[in-house]
């Protein structure tokens, strides 16, 4: 027993890395720490002579589960925003994904985009812009739950909803309509005054609703697409 105290030192690494894993808040950092935990666990299992368990831990626990979880986290922690395609790009009604940096140059919407990305970044979420050809296709994408939020300029909201036209001069230029209540709570008060945020009930086809009270109900509107 006395000559085997290096076993104790190696086994003590396991609760150490496990503690590091459970105190991690960023999901991507937690994935990397999970890989470290898997490597240490494989070492401990091999140390105790369980060669098959160590091999399974390395193959499934480390490689497979980390890769699958990385893809799952990457595709679920994301807000899809539907935008209208610029006139120069004539898409044939087919939605296509554009990089955010591409939009940055050509649009005067940079402060809104950066505020969006900053407030989403606090929750480790990403922003993905999807372009649509017409405002009609944009509304359809919102009601069919293809995107979480659509981005309209006030001209287009005037066209589709005449009653909702803002009266004052200092009216927002852009309108963001989201169908996810949690996204509405996250983004409320974070946007610059040129953009206003509206919550749209996806089950209700009548269109815009009044913004709901905070914490009124917590239905399970997660951001999974």
């Amino acid at each position: 027993m006395t000559e085997d105290w290096y076993v104790v030192a190696i086994v003590a690494l396991l609760p150490l890395t496990a503690g590091m894993l459970v105190t991690q808040v960023n999901p991507y950092h937690a994935l990397v720490i999970r890989g470290i935990l898997g490597a240490v666990a494989a070492l401990v299992y091999a140390l105790f002579g369980a060669a098959d368990v160590a091999l399974t831990e390395a193959l499934v626990g480390t490689m497979l589960s980390i890769t699958l979880y990385a893809i799952a986290v990457r595709s679920s922690l994301m807000m899809r925003v539907g935008v209208l395609a610029p006139e120069t790009i004539s898409t044939s009604g087919e939605a296509e994904i554009v990089a955010v940096s591409e939009i940055d140059r050509s649009h005067p919407t940079a402060p809104v985009l950066s505020a969006l990305r900053q407030s989403l970044g606090k929750y480790h979420m990403r922003l993905e812009l999807v372009t649509y050809a017409s405002p009609l296709a944009l509304q359809a994408a919102l009601t069919t739950k293809d995107v979480h939020t659509i981005w309209l300029t006030s001209k287009e909201t005037l066209k589709s909803e005449p009653a909702e036209s803002p009266a004052s001069d200092s009216a927002p230029v852009y309108q963001l309509q989201t169908r996810v209540r949690r996204l509405y709570e996250i983004l409320q008060g974070q946007l610059p005054p040129t953009a206003e945020l509206v919550y749209v009930n996806p089950t209700d086809s009548s269109g815009l609703k009044k913004p709901p009270e905070m914490g009124m109900s917590d239905d399970s509107t997660e951001t999974s697409s």
């Binding site: 890989g35 490597a39 494989a42 160590a54 091999l55 890769t67 990385a70 893809i71």
Partner: peptide, 21 residues
């Protein structure tokens, strides 16, 4: 044998994760 296998597999997992990130 398990050590050699883990040596190669652990690096493969690392590369996959690096590309996803």
């Amino acid at each position: 044998v398990v050590g050699v296998l883990i040596l190669s597999v652990g690096n493969a997992a690392l590369m996959l994760l690096a590309h996803v990130l």
